[in-house]
Design a protein around this nucleic acid. Structure first.
Lengths: 195, 195
DNA sequence: GTCTATATGTTGATAGAC
DNA sequence: GTCTATCAACATATAGAC
């Protein structure tokens, strides 16, 4: 117990981010006040500014952390050796990763318009890097003759939209397990790319 | 010219809805003030309340009008005779209708969380009715043995998510015409359902 | 039907005591 | 590091003159 009473910097910071992420996802960035976040954390509004520059910086940090996580997690993922294996790996990874972080995903897709231009450019760049991951897989498969794609770019966007849509309806208490959902979507993706 | 000077009820109402739709889509419901909408219309904020009960009622009316339009337009659409023809008709209709109304679509998907519970229930009911349109087509095709679907419900959600995603990237000035986009997506949908 | 004026509350952010 | 107190700006909505 060497810590000074009232010193919570090591715990208040993460709690602030957790609370903001939950509230932003539920009500939207613009609809949530700093006072609401502070109340959730259990401090006064003024105290939040010891951890963040301002509300915009808080939103940006949440979104950037999420996309950094996403790209790092894909780097650490076993990708298989053929384009077909890589596509199955990506499909399952995308569903699993997104279902594990519903709030962060929601914010990353819904609050783009509330980012200041400079912040938006950073986030958009990271999002495109992730998009390129799938595009490269699809192009490799098309070039190898194992995928039949009318348009590689559109197929990339179509597959990501289809997979991300899972987060809008999936519930842990629902009819299907995550593994079952992964397998059903993989079945549809595989057919959609003509493999 | 029998109209009294200052009487604009027949034009201010639609202009109000147009302005609100544009601003809500661009900045989000919570981030847009009644003053901003009034300024766009060219009246004072107080005058808006001659046309709407309150801000929430304005949002609800916009979303309900959009979904009523959507369901009515599908009713008026030629649907073909076989499940395969119906699915192609739905695919093309969905893309066309959504690309024609980017702002209304954006609001319908993004502002659900800003609806009061009673309003949300109405909108959600209409949305599900539209979902059922596709689900019925897919089930008919599966029963007829022309579609191969691992799960009809998930296929419904997957196809709608994939098609609606078009609105996030399509630009009239882009590489592909609308008809070309419709055909490329129809190609992917057809393969995804195993037809 | 629109205006001005206003009631009433909330917002993001800061200053300074402890 | 957190608190209280505070600021200036902004919010939604209404009342009453014209």
């Amino acid at each position: 117990m060497a810590r000074t009473s009232g010193s919570h910097s090591d715990i208040t910071g993460p709690r602030l981010r957790d609370a903001a992420q939950r509230l932003f996802a539920q009500h939207g960035y613009a609809a949530v006040s700093m006072r609401q976040i502070a109340a959730e954390v259990g401090v006064q509004a003024g105290a939040l500014y010891n951890y963040i520059p301002d509300k915009q910086g808080l939103l940006f940090n949440l979104m950037k952390a999420h996309l950094d996580d996403l790209l790092a997690a894909w780097q650490a993922e076993p990708k298989g050796e053929t384009p077909l294996e890589a596509l199955e790996s990506f499909t399952r990874f995308h569903i699993r990763f997104h279902l594990d972080r519903p709030d962060a995903v929601f914010i990353a897709y819904m609050e783009l318009r509330n980012l200041e231009p400079a912040n938006f450019a950073v986030i958009e760049g990271l999002r495109k890097r992730y998009e390129t991951v799938l595009e490269d897989i699809l192009r490799a498969g098309k070039d190898a003759g194992v995928f039949t794609l009318p348009d590689t770019k559109l197929a990339t966007l179509a597959v990501i939209a289809m997979l991300t849509g899972v987060t809008t309806w999936y519930r842990d208490t629902g009819r299907l397990s995550r593994d079952r959902v992964e397998r059903i979507y993989w079945n549809m993706v595989r057919k959609a790319v003509g493999a």
